[in-house]
Design a binder for these strands. Structure first.
Lengths: 143, 143
DNA sequence: TTCTTACATTGTAATTGTTATAATTAATTT
DNA sequence: AAATTAATTATAACAATTACAATGTAAGAA
């Protein structure tokens, strides 16, 4: 079953209306295979939806996040990036050029358990990113 | 040797001038034992430095980050929080009230190595946070 | 010391990502 | 079809951060 159809089912199950805008945003997120910002999405869809508002993009990304379809990657200054949730993967980020590469890893359940045990928190999820230089930037560094 | 003195030495070694403002910001970061925002620091020091600008706080936090004395914890909407780098610890964050609790963990070298191997990146560091509900908020949830 | 230069700080304006609001439009229920 | 609910739009507001220009301060050279 393709991920778009699955996502639309999830929306239907949680009682979220499937509007043309939502359909298009989801489709873009799935097909882009990148980690677009809200503005990237807005720009990419302005051909199809000339009247769509940025607010719609933000609103719907929030909705998608709330039902667990999308993860938000936040950074300090720059805009958040949005990632369609598929398999369990993490991100390796180049500090020079900003490139983001997916990287599969079985998960850090052990860390979550330990954290829960030590702090008494009811642990829900975690975030992990790895930072460094991508091969291109790393080779440029050494002159 | 106390951490403030060590930090000042680091600054000296990297050729960063030790100004009264920098001294005070570092001191506050070390003693507060919390994870203050730039504005927290600004407000906390306005008694001692009535003329200090917010820009100075931001500038110096950036300097400290660049020489590795301070870590910046970024979130989406809210302000960044700044953490004086001491031992290797991670953060457990309450999604309800925002409380941040430190939590010691030996590090995730294995993940870094694997990431480096799989993606070809020159890995420098990583970021990990755990999210959930703190004991207080968790008990409030269940009515 | 005095001059010169480089770095720091200050105050303010500008920027930028995001959210709130109110009005309009569209979809669903009765 | 009418009533209700939700979604979209356009725009204004907000808040965190940065850029900029002016001023101040410290270190090294003459």
């Amino acid at each position: 079953m393709n991920p778009l159809k699955e996502a639309l089912d999830t929306l239907k199950d949680t009682g979220v209306r499937i509007t043309p805008q939502r359909h298009a945003i989801l489709e873009y997120l799935i097909n882009s295979m990148s980690h677009p910002t809200a503005d990237d999405i807005y720009k990419a869809l302005e051909g199809k939806f000339p009247n769509m508002s940025v607010a719609t993009v933000y609103n719907n990304l929030r909705v998608f996040r709330e039902v667990g379809l999308v993860k938000e990657l936040t950074f300090g200054d720059a805009s958040s990036r949005f990632d369609f949730v598929t398999s369990h993967h993490y991100h390796v980020i180049c500090e020079k050029c900003g490139k983001i590469v997916d990287f599969l890893y079985p998960g850090l359940d052990e860390v979550e358990h330990l954290a829960s045990h030590v702090t008494g928190f009811k642990v829900e999820n975690h975030r992990m990113e790895i930072y460094g230089s991508c091969p291109e930037c790393a080779s440029k560094e050494v002159h």
